[in-house]
Design a protein around this nucleic acid. Structure first.
Length: 312
DNA sequence: ACCCCCGCCTGGCGGC
DNA sequence: TGCCGCCAGGCGGGGG
């Protein structure tokens, strides 16, 4: 279940293995995977053919690859070498990219870099081949919550694809404004866990890292945001960043083989989770059994002693 | 405008 | 053993 750290691991893989390469063909094997690309599968494939994937960008859980007209002018050498030596230029400008290939992995999406001849994955949805004859990029997604599309890149200070203009900066971006976030929490009529999951306030935080950050900050998710002091909000943001940085250091969280990084290796941060999925197990801080509560047709996990409902 | 919550989709698995 | 139904997840959009 990819959240921000896992998506960042994938971005790095794309940056290393795919950036700078030119698409020879795109093949859509399941129309649902491109359902948000309104003009449809044929248009999607046509839009990508011949374009160079300039770089790999991320905001929250979204990934995008700015598109340029072919950089090399013509086809590269056959059996080409992966673009691992060069970090491609940043989004847009240098090559005038005004469009991007946008991806959201949903809960089971994978972007795999594999040899062209290799066996097609059972849940393969979209396939991109390159003009250098090197490894393909494959979008594999069992539960089809993820999707790909090509869209316009908005000419902002940091260009972002049009469909995600409403997604807030994530807490690992320099552009994330702690003070503005705190101010918005101060006037919201909602609970802190709902706020953490609201991608228009802060992006990239999913159910797992919300629970882990709340545990670290000793906050119950049901606490009204207006009850939080500025200091407590700072603690919470620090906790979010901490848990994400640790996960990133370990290559992302993985509970099963559904999540793998761009080369097919699983992360293992799940061994480090303190409360998520640990109902009944002792809290690592105080020993009280971890509590599981229903939340939005799923679950929240917390320590009943370290995270009392009234804490501010 | 703000906030809440349903529905989307699939496969693994628990229970009968 | 087989089948049914529940559960997981992010997020768009509709309803209140």
């Amino acid at each position: 279940m990819p959240e921000l750290p896992e998506v960042e691991v994938v971005r790095r893989g794309l940056s290393r293995w795919v950036a700078g390469r030119t698409v020879a063909f795109a093949e859509v094997l399941h129309p649902r995977a491109i359902r948000r690309h309104v003009p449809g599968a044929a248009e999607f494939a046509g839009r990508l053919a011949g374009r160079t994937l300039v770089s790999a960008e991320r905001r929250g859980k979204y990934l995008w690859l700015p598109l340029a007209e072919s950089l090399n002018g013509s086809e590269g050498p056959a059996g080409g070498i992966p673009a691992d030596a060069r970090e491609a230029p940043p989004a847009g400008e240098e090559h005038g990219a005004a469009e991007a290939l946008l991806a959201h992995l949903g809960m089971s999406g994978q972007l795999l870099v594999v040899e062209p001849g290799s066996t097609l994955e059972k849940h393969l949805r979209v396939r991109l081949g390159f003009d250098d004859g090197g490894p393909e990029l494959r979008f594999v997604d069992q539960r089809t919550f993820g999707h790909l599309l090509v869209s316009r890149l908005l000419p902002l200070e940091r260009p972002v694809p049009e469909p995600i203009a409403h997604i807030a900066a994530d807490p690992l971006e320099e552009a994330f404004d702690d003070e503005a976030f705190a101010a918005r929490l101060g006037v919201r009529q909602t609970e802190v866990k709902r706020a953490l999951l609201d991608q228009s306030l802060i992006s990239g935080v999913g159910n797992i890292y919300a629970d882990e950050a709340l545990w670290r900050a000793r906050l119950h998710g049901g606490t009204p945001t207006r009850a939080l002091s500025r200091r407590k909000i700072d603690e919470l943001l620090a906790a979010v960043r901490e848990v994400m940085a640790e996960a990133l250091g370990q290559g992302g969280t993985s509970f099963d083989s559904l999540y793998v990084n761009v080369n097919g290796e699983s992360g293992y941060f799940d061994r480090s989770l303190n409360v998520y999925g640990r109902e009944g197990e002792p809290c690592g801080r105080c020993g009280a059994p971890v509590l599981r509560e229903a939340f939005m047709n799923r679950s929240s996990y917390s320590c009943p002693r370290c995270q009392p409902r009234s804490a501010t």
